[in-house]
Simulated assay, not measured.
Amino acid sequence: MDLAFVESPVQLLNVLEWAHSTQAGTPAGTLSGVPAQPGARATGAAAAAARDLTVVVLSPTDPMSRGQLRRMAELARDEGFTVRWQEARGRKGAPLRTIRELAPLLRRSRRIVIGDPFSRYVQLLLTLVGTKDLTVVDDGTATMEYVSQVARGERLVRWHRRGRRGPRELVLAPVSAVARRRLSPSASREVEVFTSMPVEPPAGITVTANTFAWTRSRFGPPRLTRGADLVGTSLVETGVVDPEQYEEAVAALAAEHGATRYFAHRRESPEKLHRLANRTGLEIVRPDLPLELIARRGPIGRTVLSFPSTVVHTLPLALAGTGITVAVCDISPEWLKDTASPRARGFLAGVTGTARDVHRIAAPV
């Protein structure tokens, strides 16, 4: 049995993509009332494959993430997978109870699939897996940072964090050290990275390309609208970009390109979205699924505008052959907050610079 731990909708989507890529060749069925595309081949729907993978949702507490995860869990169950919803946070004793309940599954599993190697929760679970084979699926652009940090032998720190060690980090340092070893290849453990991101893995890590074949086989092609759509980011919420600068940039892009809708990131605050709607007149859309599925299902604009984020790598793959242009707007240095991580500017430039099949546009002034 393979065991997957997911904490976000995108992670669960990419677990389904990974399962599809590893079990290709089974006739497709239907997905939540959406007919399979002609000639589509399903992997997740295969009974044998479904028996071999159990997905554990380590549920977050914020409502938007929980809502999207429940929708993604429905899709995974429709594909025949066992999905276990674990209330892992927000209740007294939840972490210890979760670990105790999951320990038997961990012992029986052959391979562990995770979406966020930086997650303290996942790192704690990894201390229990021993030498089992490991697959890391995309949780966005953080995959690029994970691979580079493993290659350099560094401790795992999210790119937008400043890296200072507080009391909590010091207490968890032994757990992180064990997890880092589990996340590195060895003679007794295979490590695979399933990704749509451009990465240069160290020796011993196998990289499998995520082409969004499952998404393309199930949804679309989408109906195109005449205008442009703009994709939001959580760069303000993560403390990287100044809120006022971000709002000005969104307003300028919408006016210049005739955007009519703004697809909000699930972490964007309601207050910020309210200000954007009032300032720009954009229709704010709160997707109930990851944007790759929303865009593939349509309707979607002929041009999709984005700031540096995961979607500038994933949308060209999910929308291949549709004629949709994905355009990425650079982050101007003056937009960054003084408290942003020193690595932020270089990392965001790298996200943009390595994106394939996208149109680059200058930051508005």
Rank of each mutant, 00 (worst) to 15 (best):
L3T: 01
Q11S: 04
Q11Y: 06
N14G: 00
L16C: 10
E17D: 02
T22P: 00
A24V: 08
G25M: 08
G25L: 05
T26Q: 02
P27G: 02
A28E: 10
A36V: 11
Q37F: 01
P38K: 03
G39H: 10
G39R: 09
R41S: 04
R41P: 00
T43E: 06
A48H: 06
A50S: 15
T54C: 02
P60R: 12
M64R: 15
R66W: 00
R66C: 06
G67N: 13
L69Q: 11
R70H: 09
E79H: 08
F81K: 08
R84S: 00
G90H: 08
R91L: 14
P95R: 12
R97D: 11
R97E: 03
I99P: 00
L105T: 07
R107H: 13
R110E: 15
I114W: 10
G115N: 10
L125N: 01
V129K: 06
T131K: 14
L134R: 09
T135I: 13
Q149L: 12
V150S: 05
G163W: 11
R164S: 14
E169K: 07
L170F: 06
L170H: 06
L172Y: 11
P174S: 04
S176Y: 09
L183C: 02
S184D: 03
P185K: 06
A187D: 05
E190F: 03
V191D: 05
S196M: 12
V199L: 03
V199K: 03
T211E: 15
F219G: 01
G220C: 10
A228Y: 05
L230P: 02
G232I: 12
T233F: 01
S234K: 09
V236M: 08
T238R: 10
G239H: 05
P243N: 05
V250M: 04
A255G: 14
H265E: 05
H265V: 05
R266L: 09
S269N: 02
K272I: 07
L273A: 03
L273I: 12
N278K: 13
T280I: 07
V285D: 01
D288Y: 04
L289S: 04
E292A: 15
E292K: 14
I294L: 11
A295W: 09
I300D: 00
V304S: 13
F307D: 01
P308C: 02
S309C: 13
L317S: 08
L317F: 09
A318Y: 14
V326E: 06
C329I: 07
A340L: 13
S341D: 02
S341W: 12
P342Q: 10
G350M: 02
V365E: 10
